[in-house]
Amino acid sequence: MATDFGQISRSEHLPARIAAKIGREITEGRIAPGEKLPTENLLATTFGVSRSVVREAIAQLRNEGLVETRQGVGAFATEIERRQSLRIEQGDLANRGSFRDLFQLRIPLEVEAARLAAIHHTPEELGRIDEALLQMTGTDKWTGQGIVADLAFHRAIAAATHNDYFLLFIGFIAERISLAINAARAAAILEEIVEVTIAEHVSIRDGVAARDPIKAGEAMRHHLNGAAARLDLTIESF
């Protein structure tokens, strides 16, 4: 495929922007249904980003049903008749009310996901949660890679529910909420917000690891309410 995606600005949220560009190529037919996408290496070179950013973009497209991945083979544009209709353009969330509503939907989904993950997770799934948390707390925590790790943590929790619909919907929403992570970092002292966010994720992980659904769910609720407050969003709760 000879599509010229072009490099994009580092100031944008890279995975979401790359996913949007590739998504348009698919929906507008320049990447045909069933056609294999370029390799991660080629896409990374084309966009001028790391392979991990490309992987996040492909994961978003997979959550949207536009791409299917085959282990050891690569990523392919989904056949039209198998595509899902779940799609929200990034621009739609420029409206504060719409953004708040999407964030409010996230809370009950992720609280329940944390509870289910506490009950159903395997040692391997807990390992993936720990791996994402380790990346969040490492030297990259001040950079965009910290945001990538944050999203990976939430997807790992969703995967540990053993309910594919949680992974589908939470993965889809989390990619859009990634804009919130950027906004929160921009609106606060970075060192403070990163450390607070990490502590909240550690509490979620500990609740899951302890197989305590109440503790895990409340830790997730505390984290999401805190995230909303850092964005000055008013979220109704009962």
Rank of each mutant, 00 (worst) to 15 (best):
R96T: 15
A19S: 12
V208I: 14
E110G: 09
Q71S: 12
A184F: 00
Q7V: 13
R51A: 02
A44F: 07
T161H: 11
R30Q: 12
A75W: 01
A114L: 01
F238L: 13
R24S: 11
E56H: 11
E89I: 13
Q60K: 14
E40Y: 08
F103A: 09
H201S: 03
R106T: 12
R17H: 03
M1Q: 08
L190R: 15
E40T: 15
T46F: 00
A19R: 10
V67C: 13
A159T: 10
R17C: 05
D212N: 14
Y165H: 11
G34K: 08
D130G: 06
A2F: 04
V53A: 14
D140M: 02
A183K: 13
A229H: 13
P33H: 03
A113P: 11
T197Q: 03
L224E: 08
E110D: 15
R70A: 07
V196A: 11
E40D: 07
G65R: 08
E28L: 14
G65F: 00
H120Q: 13
A59G: 12
E12G: 09
A152T: 01
Q71Y: 09
G6T: 11
A19T: 10
L43V: 07
T46A: 15
G226N: 13
N163Y: 09
R55H: 06
I147H: 09
T39A: 09
R17S: 10
A16D: 08
R176D: 05
R230N: 12
A44E: 05
Q71P: 04
A174W: 02
S52E: 07
T234E: 12
E200W: 00
R96E: 12
R100C: 03
A114W: 00
L167Q: 14
L61S: 05
N95H: 10
S203M: 05
D150V: 07
L61V: 15
I235C: 14
A57C: 07
Q90C: 08
I88K: 12
S52V: 14
D212F: 03
S11F: 03
E191K: 14
L126C: 01
P108H: 05
R106H: 10
L116D: 06
